[in-house]
Amino acid sequence: MDKQELKTLVAQLLREMDTDAPTVQTATQELPDLTKLDLRQEYHVAEPADKDAFLRLKKKTPARLGLGRCGARYKTASMLRFRADHAAAQDSVFSLVPKDFYEKNDLPFVQTMCKDKDQYLTRPDLGRRFDEQAQAVIRQVCGQSPRVLLVIGDGLSSNAITANALDCAAAIRQGLKSFGIELGKSLFIQYARVGAMDHIGEITDAELICMLVGERPGLVTSESMSAYITYRPRPGIAESKRTVVSNIHRQGTPAVEAGAHIAELLKTMLEKKASGIDLR
């Protein structure tokens, strides 16, 4: 085969490959969103003995059961979904609550002593303290010796806060109003640890503080929020003195109903002058 023949052959091959090759268009088409699939309604075991019975069991748990396998391993779809959910959890930890959220909803902004997310994650102690400037804002917004303070902190999930905090806070405010308890302005705290409420307690001499805070996201939802409530919070107070209402999200306790429950808890705590295990 001479050089010319070889050239012709290669050119022909390339032409053929070109027509067979996937076009660039397919690559730009949008792929289906893996995370939109409701896992509780999916069952992938081949030749099941009783698929319907397994699906009924699956309704009772978010655990990843009945995924099927290939040899000793789970299937590609299961692996991709797991990584997608994990990525959503990480995104929720590493992203910030958008400015619009607190600016449009009249929530004065303060930041703990953390400079950025990395420092927030590695230095929990700084997430519980405020610098002089932030302290001045807190004093100005919350006033001195309020009965109840409601603050919102991003914590470990910004998604949880954007999804639930406003509805929950509105229900708390209304509930307290129905009991004749006035609630002042709320704050938004960036890079907040639960213990940040203790410093606020010290700065303002508040009797009772409730903090809505994003929970560390899991693989089931990245939108779960908690309320931590402490009677007379001060730096160094025992964690057992806090009352927590967790699992506030669409699949858990709905935000407004949790808010109504929290409002009643706050009323009870003011009456009994206690929170956490002291309340029992």
């Binding site: 229900a171 209304q174 129905s178 009643e264």
Partner: peptide, 17 residues
């Protein structure tokens, strides 16, 4: 649906104690 406590408190604000 789970919403009675919030609605009850809202009604209390509307209709009086």
């Amino acid at each position: 649906q789970d919403m009675a406590k919030a609605l009850g408190q809202a009604l209390r604000c509307h209709m009086g104690k």
